[in-house]
Write a protein that binds this DNA or RNA. Sequence first.
DNA 1: ACAAAAGTGTTGCTGTTACACCCATGG
DNA 2: CCATGGGTGTAACAGCAACACTTTTGT
Lengths: 219, 219
Amino acid sequence: MENSYYNVVETLVLIYAADAGKLKIFLKKKEDEPYKGYWTLPSAPLNNETTLEENASLIYQSMTGLNDGIIYQSKAFSNLDRDPNARIIGISFVAITDKSLTDMKNNSDSKAWFDVNELPKLGFDHENIINEVSKEIKSKIATNYDDMLLSFFQSDFTLPELQLFYENILGKTIDRRNFHKKFASQELVIDTGFKTTKGSGRPGTLYRFNQDKMKGKRI
Amino acid sequence: MENSYYNVVETLVLIYAADAGKLKIFLKKKEDEPYKGYWTLPSAPLNNETTLEENASLIYQSMTGLNDGIIYQSKAFSNLDRDPNARIIGISFVAITDKSLTDMKNNSDSKAWFDVNELPKLGFDHENIINEVSKEIKSKIATNYDDMLLSFFQSDFTLPELQLFYENILGKTIDRRNFHKKFASQELVIDTGFKTTKGSGRPGTLYRFNQDKMKGKRI
DNA sequence: ACAAAAGTGTTGCTGTTACACCCATGG
DNA sequence: CCATGGGTGTAACAGCAACACTTTTGT
């Protein structure tokens, strides 16, 4: 610490999922000071013998119990006052999963999913990090099919569900017929033959993505 | 250094410019061991009292003598063997400028621009870094008008020049009439009234970008 | 006059938008 | 039978791709 060229680096993982059309993020409640009782992003300091990617994967797995889900690097945050006690450089990673796959049994009071538009009280600069990275994610979803959609929708889904997700991301309503046309006529989705059962109203057709056709497609 | 949670962090700056349709990057020759005589990216270690962005700006300014040029963060590299002597985390930044604006007078033998497709012998993992970040840049250019084009083409340019740049990025030829139509008919470029003088063949019309119309446009 | 490079229009195709009614289920 | 939500077609329009000849300059 005497040598000013040694820095503490932490990995932060932003775990996202789509839920009922909303973009949600996984947070944990901090149980010690500073920021006790505030919500924070899952994170861990980086030691000299681990890569950032390895560290991020470990965090992701310990939080969700999953191995899947794309993980990619996002921004680094290096403001001097990120942490009240020390200068810590934060490097953020994005993991995208399907909320229904995560093991929510160990979802005690100290772990939960939040709508990115309705965040709780957050510690450190995590609100800022979430907002910056979420903006980036939304922009990616809005401009590319990408691998991301495949990670968000690993379970079967209905087109209205998918449409709702897009409407939230884009901040505007979409015509149902045109939306259907885009996905169904281009064969980007495959009819599973099943229907939703729950809820009032006519049941929706369950689809899954046609992965081959999705590759490299732009919206 | 005893404490394994202290890391050395360096900022690397990838300075790009368009030159005769090619995507070029600015490199410097290393004058001491290790990798003496190899080319490397401009870089500097990060101390405890500087942000990554500040560090990147300082490097950019000291290399080009410019204040302008967009600088944004790109990937972090954390493989354990990046540097033969120590574990150093590298965080890369992209700066885009107009080659004709940089002060090439101090472009001694130890500083030069290279075509990203014809890189010299590079030290450390810098070839890998350049390839990864260049791929990202190319993809951004291919999909968005973005601020990037404005930074690449700050001086007046002809449409054939711009077209050549796109052809190199996209790796395919583009029809001249269609290219002209896209930019001229949408008023994305403004005729300056001047013509190129040099070279054989008919002189080209010099344009500049219509910044208002470019905002948020997709290609 | 010839070589080199730039300028310019039309047509068909493809994707996008706008728009309204009927159908299947639960209560 | 009513409320809720899902499914479906057509027509106008805009953007994109394919296509070749003429003009301006330097040598």
